[in-house]
Amino acid sequence: MTLFVRPNPSSGIPIYLQLMQQVKHAVETGALKPGDQLPGIRPLAEELVINSNTIAKVYRELEHEGVVELRQGSGAFVSQNARARRLAETFRAGRSLMVSTVERLRERGVSEDEIRRLFEAAVAGGRRRAGGRNA
């Protein structure tokens, strides 16, 4: 299965977090749809050459977060409301990222008006990069 990219053990981010992020990203983009089955623990461990306990942990944590369902004897499946949950989670993370960025700019003496201008420019820049699709 080409869904997973080999995690980097030396990146500073624990392997299990990297894999969880990969699954969540796949759910957000629709590469994984509700009801899709994730690879079995052993085949995935052998494909990525990482510890199967790590993969078991990934699936457990994802179940805990409601992204997947573990069905006894069958495996792990993307849960029905996974995408909605992911988008809500992304929004929450986005909000806290925004708050901390604004805070850091303020600490450096950037005025509120300048912060707004920076934000507008960033959003517009994103729009342009996306080829004006969202204009």
Partner: peptide, 8 residues
């Protein structure tokens, strides 16, 4: 890979 598979 063989080691990881056996432990799995």
């Amino acid at each position: 890979r063989a080691l990881v598979g056996e432990v799995a």
